[in-house]
């Protein structure tokens, strides 16, 4: 199934398998297809032309966004941060071909692990360990000067560890909390070393987490605790986070 949309031109070319529409966001669509050969799955991120925008402006915005995401991803990879690698891009065609990250979104795995439990979540070591790995992943990303801009548990994948070994389920097992955190969707990411920007990044995640997993809010402190140990300015970021909580994501225009 490829959805109700016409396929982007790049996916109308011959391919060994049918592209599959994975998600549709406000700005673009994500397909699963293959890069070069049938055995190399990839994610195709497509930003279709927006008919309501002036064509010249639309082309410039699309180009800019494709470019900036490709650059941020490559930069993260060079620094050893787990993000999808870039295989190819076409800023005119409006697409990016990215490494396919096997596994499931962290959101899904957390919800599976929570089930319908109402208690005992605070003592769940598996979940708490996952929280700490999330904190570490974000800290490592911030340490190299990248802020994500839209951190949620949907924008992180839990990827089963032995990426090369083919034994077991390639997408990982239901409810399994083991694996590597891979941060995805860096479409709103930017380069920044500012304490403020990093604190806002954490704040956005904190808020998103609270509404997506209200029952697990009690263990969110594990994220911050692990973050605290990842780089030199982390304690200052956490201090700033307290200010951001008081005033919200946007800085006051008064004064």
């Amino acid at each position: 199934m490829s959805g109700d949309f016409p396929l982007p031109p790049i996916l109308q070319t011959p391919c060994s398998s049918e592209p599959v529409l994975i998600t549709q966001g406000a700005e673009g669509r994500l397909y699963k297809t293959t890069y070069l050969t049938p055995n190399l799955p990839c994610a195709l991120k497509y930003r279709p032309p927006k008919p309501w925008r002036h064509p010249t402006l639309d082309a410039r915005l699309t180009k800019h966004r494709i470019l900036s995401e490709a650059r941020i991803l490559s930069r993260c990879r060079r620094e050893g941060i787990r993000v999808p690698g870039v295989y190819a891009s076409d800023e005119v065609g409006g697409w990016l071909m990215l490494e396919w990250v096997p596994g499931a979104p962290v959101r899904v795995r957390i919800n599976e692990a929570l089930g319908d439990r109402q208690s005992g979540i605070e003592e769940d070591e598996g979940l708490k360990d996952l929280m700490r790995r999330i904190g570490k992943a974000i800290g490592d990303m911030h340490a190299v000067g990248v802020v994500h801009g839209d951190l949620t548990t949907s924008n992180m994948m839990l990827s089963p560890k032995p990426l090369n070994e083919v034994d077991g389920e390639p997408e990982g097992q239901k409810g399994c909390l083991e694996g590597e955190i891979v941060i995805i969707d860096l479409g709103l990411a930017s380069g920044s070393l500012l304490i403020e920007d990093r604190a806002v990044d954490l704040y956005v995640l904190e808020r998103a987490f609270g509404s997506t997993h209200p029952r697990a809010e009690c263990i969110f402190d594990q994220v911050l605790e692990a973050y605290n140990g990842t780089f030199k300015q982390a304690p200052a970021v956490l201090k700033k986070l307290e200010d951001v909580r008081m005033r919200g994501r946007k800085r006051s225009m008064i004064g």
Partner: peptide
């Protein structure tokens, strides 16, 4: 790239190198 030098497993390292090389090429001319 210290993190790259630290990878002990030869084939894992090759895979990383390959991804970095392809990524660097993908950005070229943009």
């Amino acid at each position: 790239l210290n993190w790259l030098d630290k990878i002990k497993d030869h084939s894992a390292k090759q895979k990383e190198v390959e991804m970095l090389v392809v990524g660097a090429m993908a950005l070229r001319g943009l």
